[in-house]
Design a protein around this nucleic acid. Structure first.
Lengths: 141, 141
DNA sequence: CAGAATCCGTGGGGATACTG
DNA sequence: CAGTATCCCCACGGATTCTG
């Protein structure tokens, strides 16, 4: 709740297009995990999410707020101070999110192998190699 | 298993951008539900998924195949005959999919209300009305 | 600190028409 | 029947720069 978020909270291949299950937009699931232990400031979020530009992070947070999953609070004071926290609705989403993460973790190797063998088989092909990646992002792990 | 898929299997607002949980691309979750009871032919899938153009349906099926969730089988014969079915991996995905659907169904009203009040509050605003819809689709119901 | 403004590339996804 | 082939649009998301 009070510990700062670790900079290496997520590894570089996260989110991955291999994961078919996605919560919100590309970064939403990661944001939700960052808020799991209590409210966080914008700049706190930027630490584990340093690969996300401020514009994109803001957009993602606005989208979560719009969906009722996150509440944005402007604290009074001389300098800007904004906190983001999960709403009860957002918190309830941790359940299916955990289920999705568990599934992904359990089947990660199969997902890798499946894509590899598909691409091996259809890559060398001359025509109709048609291989559109899924529009998916890896939620958590 | 043998009953044809009903044309009204999904309602028109499905998938909906209100749902933050998404499996694969826009139509993947619907396809998976269509395959739940056994293998289906391309034209069988087109009945409940009649709003999806053949090109897009093919793309979605290829993506599922690439991810190892669906197997495509060309049956021998004079006229083209292709079947799609869930792999064990695809079938295992029914579990988190069901969890997601349950969550969505349970919180549907809250999702609607949240967006409505957000848009009511920020819509009339002059500047920074910044309201980017989430890149999400409604999985099942 | 917490963003906003601007520019821009990529590709998902729809419409339409055609084919082995 | 089971797709392909084109064309097109625009929303997502990244880079960069600027500000109350």
């Amino acid at each position: 709740m009070r510990e700062p978020l670790p900079a290496d909270m997520f590894d570089e291949l996260c989110p991955s297009p291999l994961n078919p299950i996605r919560f919100g937009d590309k970064w939403a699931a990661l944001i939700i995990r960052c808020l799991e232990d209590g409210p966080r400031r914008f700049s706190e979020l930027r630490v584990p999410l340093r690969r996300v530009t401020p514009k994109v992070l803001t957009g993602s947070l606005r989208s979560l707020e719009r969906g009722g999953l996150v509440r944005r609070t402007v604290l009074a004071g001389a300098t800007p101070h904004v906190e983001y926290e999960l709403t009860p609705l957002g918190r309830s989403m941790l359940v299916p999110l955990a289920a999705a993460c568990a599934w992904t973790e359990e089947h990660w190797d199969e997902l890798i192998d499946a894509r590899e063998s598909y691409d091996d088989a259809s890559g060398p092909r001359p025509a109709h190699a048609y291989a559109p990646g899924p529009a998916a992002g890896r939620p958590g792990g």
